[in-house]
């Protein structure tokens, strides 16, 4: 079992106001699954994604990633888990604007302690090949299209060979055609064995996954396997 979420709860204290972003979420995800987490804005799906991505920790409940309880580890340990086990793909791409494509893809290697410039570049080039971006590697993010940016982000997510790819509205800033291309890449990656969790509010996108978890008001409302 890759992921086991047990009664996850997240409460934010904003001054006098207590906001329960996530009330009670429990589910399990196996290796090799392609899961869409869907829900309207304010449903708590972003909070859930932050917890699943080890960017944040739950107020209550337990979160096991590959059998390891990560709901109460140190910040540095969380950083290490993010680096080794999770690959992020964001709606805003989140590439470093001043670094080249190749440098961007290399960043997780640097923090992962993978030494040797030549080795890093080789791994980065391989990852870029996988998403169909063999050329333009010395350009900067502002010199390429949105679809290409998202491919770079996917390459960066793949480079440390993570157990889990976490995509947050990956097609949200793309036109329909490009969005489809990106979705095809995700499906292809899933066929190759990668576990993918995708957060979206778009039913059409969610339908391309093989399992949909619906979140509403901080609760899991529906959890169904498609086809």
């Amino acid at each position: 079992m890759l992921i086991q979420a047990v009664n996850l709860q997240k409460v934010y204290q904003m001054g006098p106001v207590r906001v329960e972003a996530l009330k009670d979420a429990s589910f399990q995800i196996e290796e090799g699954e392609f899961v869409a987490i869907i829900g309207p804005s304010g449903s708590g799906k972003s909070t859930l994604m932050h917890i699943l991505g080890c960017l944040d920790q739950p107020t209550a409940g337990r979160y096991f990633l590959e059998g390891q309880d990560v709901s109460a580890v140190s910040d540095d340990k969380l950083a290490e888990i993010r680096n080794k086990k999770i690959g992020f793909v964001f709606q805003q791409f989140n590439l470093l604007p001043k670094a080249t494509i190749l440098q961007n893809v290399c960043v997780p290697l640097i923090y992962g302690g993978i030494r040797g410039r030549r080795r890093q570049l080789k791994l980065a080039e391989q990852a870029l090949e996988m998403v169909g971006l063999g050329n333009r590697v010395h350009h900067r993010p502002n010199e390429i299209s949105g679809g290409q940016k998202q491919r770079v982000a996917i390459a960066r997510a793949l480079i440390n060979n993570p157990s889990l790819i976490l995509a947050d509205e990956p097609t949200g800033n793309l036109d329909t055609k490009t969005g489809k291309e990106i979705m095809n890449i995700f499906r292809q990656l899933n066929k190759e064995g990668h576990t993918i969790i995708m957060v979206t509010h778009d039913q059409e996108i969610a339908d391309q996954a093989r399992r949909v978890i619906q979140i509403r008001d901080g609760l899991v409302q529906k959890d169904e396997v498609i086809a």
Binding site: L55, D75, E80, N94, P108, Y111, N160
Partner: peptide
């Protein structure tokens, strides 16, 4: 700030 956030998401520890 955003760059720092990206770096942290990609595995940068506080000391990095």
């Amino acid at each position: 700030t955003r760059e720092i956030g990206i770096r942290k998401a990609l595995g940068a520890k506080s000391r990095h």
